[in-house]
């Protein structure tokens, strides 16, 4: 049975946290835990979700949860998974929630190690495209052109000059049992991927776009809209890697306007026509590749 609002566990495992209003990251964490249920053991590195959820004595997880070091999400998951197995505990899921910086920058080594060992864990990267917890600094997953506090938009440089690292394909290159991309804008797709991952033995990686209204410069009510538009305009895609193959889940005949998507966000407001053309061209090139090579 597929996961939907109606079938979802009614318990609220992540509750009372101090995330900003409209936080996409907290939406991802909340719903993943509802899919995995009370026996999920959550590991969260230093970052937004641990900062807003674990301030003694305000502890916002109803399930077992622990903060890891910034770089150590995957390695701590490995230790917990091994430890629970040694205790003879069978019914549990070790799940990590790390942001884009915690995954693609400081945590990439430990993540790569865990995939290499094929440890039986689920790793969720909630991607809000910058170091939001420290005040919006560029990460390896900040997209081209985005203004952050360390990639200012001025006369000389128009925000971030490098494209986003492709974590999904980096992870897939390990020949991981299961990897997927998702967005909090299309929740059913995301949660069904989590459900699927929970039934697969070995390492699972899900990369979910989770807009940050504060960092993206959008109204707090627009998180879900932005998380849909990024897919609709083709700058993000919904895909899976399974049985050694890539599969695109959603191949729109026409894309909505990239410019409309960008112009709604303060972080992109400075972009010139030429910058937008660069972004649109690179989208088209990526989709040409996907359509040619993926199932």
């Amino acid at each position: 049975m597929s996961v939907s609002a109606k079938t979802l566990d009614q318990n609220e495992y992540f509750y009372g946290h101090k995330a900003c209003a409209g936080c996409g990251g907290s939406l991802a964490v909340r719903n993943v835990l509802k899919v995995l249920g009370k026996n999920a053991v959550a590991v969260l590195p230093a970052g937004c979700m641990s900062a807003v959820g674990f301030n003694f004595p305000q502890l916002c997880f109803a399930n077992n949860a622990i903060i890891s070091t910034f770089a150590g999400t995957a390695s701590m998951l490995t230790g917990i998974e091994a430890g629970f197995r040694r205790r003879g505990i069978k019914d549990f899921t070790a799940v990590g929630f790390a942001g884009d910086g915690g995954t693609a920058d400081i945590g990439i080594q430990a993540l790569s190690g865990a995939i290499d060992r094929n440890d039986n864990i689920i790793y969720i990267c909630y991607d809000n495209e910058a170091y939001m917890n420290t005040g919006i600094q560029k990460s390896g997953l900040t997209p081209f052109g985005a203004k952050t506090t360390t990639t200012p938009a001025g006369q000389n440089i128009h925000g971030n000059i490098r494209p986003k690292k492709n974590m999904f394909e980096i992870v897939a290159a390990h020949d991981i049992p299961y990897a997927a991309t998702a967005t909090v804008g299309y929740m059913n797709d995301f949660l069904n991927k989590v459900e699927k991952a929970s039934k697969i033995q070995g390492t699972k990686y899900i990369h979910v776009i989770a807009p940050c209204p504060t960092g993206w410069g959008i109204p707090v009510s627009d998180t879900v809209d932005a998380a849909r538009e990024i897919v609709d305009c083709g700058l993000w895609y919904l895909a899976e890697y399974e049985n050694h193959e890539f599969k695109i889940n959603r191949d729109p005949k026409t894309f909505t306007s990239v410019e409309d998507y960008l112009r709604k966000q303060a972080r992109f407001r400075h972009l010139s026509e030429q910058d937008i053309k660069i972004i649109t061209d690179s989208r088209d090139k990526k989709w040409e590749f996907i359509r040619k090579n993926w199932n």
Partner: peptide, 26 residues
Amino acid sequence: AEFIHVESEHSALSCAMGASAAGVRA
């Protein structure tokens, strides 16, 4: 014992902490 081939010393101790937090000897 579970012998875990970690990819760095940082992960070695991070993994040991995970095991200890799971309640076993590391």
